[in-house]
Amino acid sequence: MAAEQTKSGSTPQRRTLTVKPTLLGDKVFFGITSFTAYFSIALVGLVLVFLLIRAWPALQHEGINFLIGSTWDDSVQPMVMQIFPMLWGSILLALLGVLLAVPMAIALAYLIEFLAPKPIARVATLLVDLLAALPSVVIGLWGLFVFTPVAEGWSELLHKTLGWLPFFANETGNFSRSPFIAGWIVAVMIVPIITSVTREIFSQMDRDLINAAKALGGGMASTLTRVILPTASGGIVGGTLLGLGRALGETVAIFFVLNLSFDINWFDVSEARGGSIASMILSKLGEATDYEISGLMAAGVVLFVSTLIINFIAGYIVNRAQPWRK
C-alpha cells in the first residue's frame, strides 16, 4: 500500500485550539494568579492616584511654577511652594552618584568576570551582594560619623588644588553636608545594582568573540575597549539608568549628610547648599499643614513619575541587552 494521502488542494479550515482553561480547578488557579498580577499592577496605579488626589490643590495653585520656581515660603497665605532647587539637587546628586559609581561598577564587574581568579571573584561577588543588602539608614549613620570627616578632607583638597574650576569653588570654608559628600553616599548605594547588571551582561558574552579579539593579537585593554564595552554598552547604560532611578529616590542615607537650603546650587558640589526632593519630604512631612502636605505630595508625584519613567526605560534597555532572558 502506498501513500494514501488525499490532497484536498484548498487551504484547510483551521480549528480553534483550547487556550483558555476548561477545568474548574484550572479556572480557579489561573483566576487567582491573574488577580494577584493585576492587583500588583493596580498598586502602582493606586500609588499615583492617591498622591495626585492629595497633591491636586498645590499643583492647581502653583501650576508649572511648582517645578520651575524657586520659592518655598510659609509666611504668606496661601504658602508658596516651588521645588526647583530640590529637584535640581536630586538630579545633581544622582549625576554625581552615577559619575562616581560607574567606574567602580565597571571595574568590579571586569575584575570579577575577566581578571580575578575564581575564589577572589567569588568573594568580590559576595561583597557586592552584601553591600546591596545594607539598609540605607546604616549607610547614613556611617556617612555622618565616619565618612563625612574623611570626605571633608577630600573636598578641601580638591578645593585647594582645583579651586579655580567652578565646580570646586567654596566661599564659606565649610565643606560638610555638601552634594559632594552626599554624592559619594549615593554612589555607595547604587554601585551594587550597576555592578550586578554589568556583570550579568559580561558573563553572558560570547567568549568566542573575546578569544577572537585575543587571537588577533589584542591586549586586555584593546579587547575591553573595542570588543567588550561596545558589545555590553546597552546593558551598562540600562544598569546605570537603574542606578540613576535609585539615586533619585534615595532618602534616609543622604538625609543626615546633606544640608537642606532653598537656593539653587547649580554645580558648587563642595558647598552646603541645595537639597533633594526625598530628604525635603522626609524633613517637612511630619509637621506640615494640610496645604503644605499637598505640596509635599506633589513633590512625591514628581519623584514617583520620574523614577517610574527612568526604571521603565532602564528595564526595556536591560531586557533588550539580555536576549537570553526570554
Binding site: 499592577i41 502602582v44 498622591l51 533619585l248 529616590g249 532618602t251 512625591g300 514617583f304 523614577t307 517610574l308
Partner: peptide, 12 residues
C-alpha cells in the same frame, strides 16, 4: 511594571 515597581522610592 513589576520591574519598574522595584525602583519605587521607599519614601513614596
Amino acid at each position: 511594571l513589576i520591574q519598574s515597581m522595584s525602583g519605587l522610592p521607599s519614601v513614596v
